[in-house]
Design a protein around this nucleic acid. Structure first.
Length: 615
RNA sequence: GGUUCCGUAGCUCAGCUGGAUAGAGCAACUGACUUCUAAUCAGUAGGUCGCAGGUUCGAAUCCUGCCGGAAUCACCA
């Protein structure tokens, strides 16, 4: 039985027997004992003092004595200022180690049968993926894996924003200026090729806008708005969107294209299919390189009309109301969310309408109990409203909806801006970290005998580990500063550091001769470095549960680092595995090393990080 | 202005439902490789946990108010 369960049961029983008091669960605080004190687990006795009408020190003393007396799993205790430090028997630890040493699924919970859907990535199809997507994808992917490990059935989906004005801009620019060029003809990765035309469009538009600013129409506008000369520049900067909609020729053409698309115009649809095809082909490569995939893709072009019928129905049920101008709203004031428009006065839908419809469609497709949206925190409000509406519509999964919001990724120089060309491209980024890993690897020279192909694979694993870990170790809620030079760090609290612990173990296991695992039961006196590892290994299942419950992979990332650090420490502590003092020690340390490797492999695997054979 | 999130070492971050003297990494400095992979380890130095109150045996953690930063509050997507 799990030692923490034993404490959970025995301590209340002891208090009942000693003082005839009943302690509620939340008053029982158990921590791992701090390094500077003797013991493994600590019970805090302050919360019992009032009911027991005794001093904490005395309670701790009596409780400790009782536990030693009545359980075989504790061998010693000490009391310091109301803290009862318990020492767990070596036998318990040896049994624990025997149990997990060959269990590669250690840490996973049994299947709950509960179905969870995770939506992540969900890019627009007008340009390649960038650093912001990378954070999103890594969060979504690892959260999916963690939920699986916690026993859920997980469906990984994305909604691809494949229609709208943005893609029309790329399409229009290619049509006008592309001269029939293709990704193949230019030798460019196909999503980057499409992104190029988006940039071209913006450049053309800016040129057109600059010209227009000198026109009489522009001057008239300035006069009518009474813009002062010193404010002209700022005014035009802000006015750009209005210009696009009201004056721009290119804007008119793009909007015309969008209308034609909606009308199903064959030429526009063909162009759209071709350019989106290019984008998907490029995305596939990026996803593959990142090591992620999806179970089901939803396309906005198929879902953007969904939800209208739900709104119509909701009007009849009094959930929505219609204004005089025919627009449809929902009153969410009692949920402190104001009123929200769900259908425009011309009857067309907005984002919210579509999301309501898509949610329902997904429920029809999969019948999930949980629905996790991995979307940046700029949309917090949107999701609050969405979930509230789903609740009022009586959707069964509404309570299981969760917005996994994460903060923006900024550069040391500030926000990424596409206009200023500071957007960090996902493909470039991966290439850079892998190059850095290769540079370091060649310098260290540990792979000198390895084939070139194998080397490239390993450098890829190391580089990606550095990048992924750098991003995933940060609490999602926090906006993060992404310093490219730090993201390629391979020392200290990094992915490669953790990989290195695993690689060390693999190297030892390769060289280790046959050992009878049963011998570990005869091992005497577990050392401190070994004990620390055991305690950390012991905590693994609860770390996964916690990460799943909080939808926070960073817990797991930090845990993996602590475990790797523990192993490096053990490794350097003079306790040799191969040259262990006897067979018992060898068996014990082999089991300890194997277990650590298994947990590192599982834990890092849940983060989407592999541990290479050597490095 | 309303709402939400954030503020911990020079920098990047941990710190679980309140628990012992607030921890890591980077950068700086000192040491350890004919050793089981030194992408490692041991050590030195670095702090008014934004500020002020409150709750209590105990607060970085919970509550309130300020200060500073971010996001959002569209008949945009």
């Amino acid at each position: 039985m799990d030692i923490l369960q034993i404490i959970d049961e025995k301590v209340p029983a002891a208090l009942k027997s000693l003082y005839d008091i009943d302690v509620p669960k939340e008053k029982l605080i158990v921590n791992t004992t701090k390094k500077e004190f003797e013991g493994d687990y600590t019970v805090v006795t302050f919360p019992f003092a009032r009911d027991a009408r005794k001093k904490p020190d005395q309670i701790a003393e009596e409780l400790g004595a009782y536990l030693i007396e009545n359980t075989k799993d504790f061998t010693a205790y000490n009391v310091i200022k109301g803290f009862l430090n318990l020492t767990v028997s070596d036998d318990y630890w040896k049994h624990f180690l025997s149990r997990i040493k060959e269990d590669t699924s250690y840490g996973e919970s049994p299947k709950t049968g509960e179905k969870a859907m995770v939506e992540f990535s969900s890019p627009n199809t007008n340009k390649p993926l960038h650093l912001g997507h990378v954070r999103n994808i890594l969060l979504g992917w690892s959260t999916s894996r963690i939920l699986e490990a916690a026993g859920h059935d997980v469906v990984k989906v994305q909604i691809i924003n494949d229609r709208g004005i943005a893609i029309c801009k790329s399409m229009l620019a290619w049509k006008k200026f592309g001269e029939g060029k293709t990704p193949e003809s230019e030798g460019v990765k196909s999503d980057h090729f499409v992104g190029h035309w988006y940039v071209v469009f913006d450049a053309q538009l800016r040129g057109e806008y600059a010209e227009w600013q000198k026109s009489s129409a522009a001057q008239q506008l300035l006069e009518s708005k009474a813009v002062k000369p010193e404010n002209v520049e700022a005014f035009f900067k802000k006015y750009k969107n209005d210009y696009f909609n009201e004056y721009s020729e290119l804007g008119a053409e793009a909007k015309d294209m969008l209308l034609k698309w909606e009308a199903g115009d064959k030429e526009v649809r063909d162009l759209w299919r071709m350019m989106n095809g290019w984008v998907y082909k490029g995305f596939d490569v990026t996803y593959e390189n990142l090591g992620v995939h999806f179970d089901k893709l939803y396309y906005e072009s198929n879902t953007y009309l969904l939800g209208k019928d739900i709104i119509e129905e909701g009007i009849e049920n009094g959930i929505f109301y219609k204004k005089d101008d025919n627009s449809v709203w929902i009153d969410l004031e009692d949920a402190k969310l104001d009123h929200k428009l769900v259908l425009r006065s011309d009857g067309t839908s907005v984002y919210m309408t579509q999301d309501i419809g898509t949610a329902k469609l997904r429920y029809q497709d999969f019948g999930m109990e949980k629905m996790i949206y991995v979307v940046a925190d700029e949309q917090n409000h949107h999701f609050k409203v969405l979930f509230e509406i789903l609740k009022r519509l009586g959707e069964s999964f509404a309570d299981g909806c969760y917005h996994l919001n994460y903060g923006m990724v900024n550069l040391p120089s500030g926000r990424m801006k596409s206009r200023e060309g500071t957007v960090v491209d996902a493909d470039d980024l991966m290439k850079e970290v892998i190059q850095e890993a290769a540079k370091n690897g060649e310098a260290i020279g540990t792979l000198d005998g390895v084939s070139e192909e194998e080397k490239q694979k390993i450098f890829g694993q190391i580089g990606l580990a550095a990048l992924k870990y750098f991003i995933i170790k940060v609490n999602p809620k926090k906006s993060m500063i992404f310093d490219p030079s730090e993201s390629v760090d391979m020392q200290g609290q990094t992915g490669p550091y953790i990989q290195n612990a695993g690689v060390r173990i693999k190297s030892i296991l390769r060289k280790l001769d046959e050992v009878d695992f049963d011998d570990l039961n005869g091992y005497e006196s577990i050392h401190e470095a070994e004990k620390e590892l055991l305690q950390m290994l012991h905590a693994f299942p609860s770390i996964i549960k916690e990460a799943a419950q909080d939808y926070d992979p960073s817990h797991l990332a930090n845990y993996c680092y602590a475990l790797a650090k523990g192993y490096h420490k053990f490794y350097n502590s003079g306790l040799s595995v191969i040259r262990a003092e006897n067979q018992e020690a060898k068996a014990f340390r082999k089991a300890l090393s194997t277990s650590t490797l298994n947990v590192l492999t599982s834990g890092m695997g849940l983060l989407g990080i592999e541990i290479p054979e050597r490095m």
